[in-house]
Design a protein around this nucleic acid. Sequence first.
DNA 1: TTAATTTTTTATCATTTGTAAAATTTTTAC
DNA 2: GTAAAAATTTTACAAATGATAAAAAATTAA
Lengths: 187, 187
Amino acid sequence: MDIDNIIDNIYPLPEKSKTLLKENIYEITYPKAHVLFKANRIESTMYFIKKGIVRAYANPGDEEITFWFGKEGDAVISMKNYVENQKGYETIELLESCDLYKLNTEHLRKLFSEDIHVANWGRKFAEQELIKVEERLIFRQCRTAMERYKELMATDPELLQRVQLGHIASYLGMTQVSLSRIRAELK
Amino acid sequence: MDIDNIIDNIYPLPEKSKTLLKENIYEITYPKAHVLFKANRIESTMYFIKKGIVRAYANPGDEEITFWFGKEGDAVISMKNYVENQKGYETIELLESCDLYKLNTEHLRKLFSEDIHVANWGRKFAEQELIKVEERLIFRQCRTAMERYKELMATDPELLQRVQLGHIASYLGMTQVSLSRIRAELK
DNA sequence: TTAATTTTTTATCATTTGTAAAATTTTTAC
DNA sequence: GTAAAAATTTTACAAATGATAAAAAATTAA
């Protein structure tokens, strides 16, 4: 998905504001397994995914907890980084080789304070992410592991094709063994 | 917590913008059990809590899923309502008699398009909510029911004093019986 | 206060999920 | 293509959690 579509899907910008925003964006390609954000670091970048798929995981203790997948059209940010300019709690790695649009968040913040259209674009962006996260939170609360898997199959079957099951299991809040058992039961 | 503090904690506004925003806000008190938002309705209000505590739940009728508690200083919105002007999925009810600040979201949207400071205030508001929701999402993923309960005790012990355990259990993704068992074990 | 209602706890048993280890399949590197 | 590594599935068993019912405790209302 190209950058004009990504920007306009969030909130259509007048040409002048869009130009200002795009001045600050360039394309870059990274190989599979590249790490975009490391936990406990302050970064001032964000990305949009032109092509590919990535995952975010937190690591409280030792056990990786995958809590997000991003694919074509999605924004990739480290939340604390983006919002508060503080150390992020997540690591984000590429699950496939990816074509990305990269932008500098300090520059973006400057535009927020100078251009009301970009400010509202940033507002819409946060609001849309907010809805997505809250819906995932509620969905996650759904009863059984089986129901959570079925729900994912229904809403995002593509994910199951593109991401290895260990990560899916973590994302769904169960062990890989549990997921495997559930899949066997559904055959 | 009074409205000036609530507004400024989100993002300090210049006096003129703050006046515009506050023109649109008034105080109101409702008794315990009053419902602020009903699921499947379009509303154009939001609230800030001056005093009291509320909960949001999805699935009214069927099995209620409590996914949020709000208390002094928190904003109360129905997400789909606020962001997309569409039917909300949650019901929000007062768990105590509450003093609230009420405002109209259509008026707020108008200010977003007219005043860059208010637009950035709205952006900051969404961003801060976003961090809170994502942190809850990750926290919810904590392995065992026991761990989730301990985590809540550590991060928000006050909640356990003010909210009945049935709601807490739902919030933590377990049955009330399970929660009771865990509490007994910890004595 | 007493009675009624709601909330919490306790007990039992069934089911689900986790742990560990081995077997199988798939992917990667040479 | 083959060997090594990684990912997935399977199995057996243990632990955690859920469902249900009923008792105890706490709260609310008359």
